[in-house]
């Protein structure tokens, strides 16, 4: 009986015996083979039995289906064929075929447990280059879609060194400290009033352990996420947080 071996990089995730005449592959839960990865379309590809052979067919997926490194629409499968979908590989094995056709990567993973205590690095360079090529469409699409919006602080009131700050860096310090991005002026301005952290397009403000910073007139006692329009107040300085394209 033929089977599919689902792999990620060199690791075998699952073996799927082919018991039906048609097997659907995709990200949606209804598929026979579900691959939960954003590079995989809802209904990505399907396998169907044509006489005594399975045929792989791309279901007009966004990122394509690759058979042995070639993008295909529809193709006949033979033992040892590697189907690449997103970043996952499906190896087609037909027991009628020659066992020698087992791809080298599988042998490698089978050997791994024997070297159990030594750390091993995956030799994935070639594979990754190929993956990078194959998924470039996916990443391009994703990056234009999820273009990170930048946070921005507009000074409403008080003495600072600029009228506006665009928060491009990972950490932004508000205070008189020389490390501060938003520099407060005046004799008794706090050295560090608050710290803004950027993580994956979101901004979180945390109080410095000593001073009193307020967000929307509430005293900032624990870290909180900044939302559009929030007003940060440190003594007489007021800053409004906005997102910018």
């Amino acid at each position: 009986m033929a089977k599919l071996i689902l792999k990620f990089e060199a690791a075998v995730l699952k073996e799927i015996p082919l018991q039906k005449a048609a097997i659907s592959i995709g990200r949606s839960p209804g598929n026979d083979v579900v691959i939960d990865n954003l590079a995989v379309s809802g209904h990505h590809a399907k396998l169907s039995l044509d006489q005594d052979h399975y045929v792989i067919e791309d279901m007009s997926s966004l990122n394509g289906t690759f058979l042995n490194n070639q993008r295909i629409r529809r193709s006949l499968l033979k033992d040892g064929d590697e189907i690449l979908i997103g970043k996952h590989t499906l190896v087609y094995q037909d027991e009628g075929g020659v066992p020698a056709g087992v791809p080298a990567a599988v042998e490698k993973t089978q050997q791994l447990p024997s070297a159990a205590d030594a750390t091993v690095v995956l030799d994935t360079k070639k594979r990754r280059e190929f993956l990078a090529k194959a998924t470039s469409i996916a990443t391009e699409g994703a990056s234009s879609e999820a273009k990170e919006k930048l946070g921005c602080l507009v000074v409403l009131d008080g003495r600072t060194d600029q009228r506006e700050y665009i928060l491009t860096s990972k950490l932004c310090v508000i205070g008189k400290s020389p490390m501060a991005t938003v520099k407060l002026k005046g004799w008794f301005a706090p050295k560090v009033a608050a710290i803004i952290n950027r993580r994956e397009g979101r901004y979180e403000i945390a109080p410095s352990n000593k001073t009193v910073a307020k967000v929307n007139s509430e005293v900032l006692s624990a870290p909180r996420e900044l939302k559009e329009g929030d007003v940060i107040q440190i003594k007489r300085v007021k800053l409004q947080f906005n997102f910018r394209e």
């Binding site: 990089e9 447990p113 750390t119 690095v121 360079k125």
Partner: peptide, 13 residues
């Protein structure tokens, strides 16, 4: 048992 496999390392590439 694959806990010892790392994806990146110094010197690998």
């Amino acid at each position: 048992e694959l806990a010892n496999v790392i994806m990146r390392a110094l010197g690998a590439e």
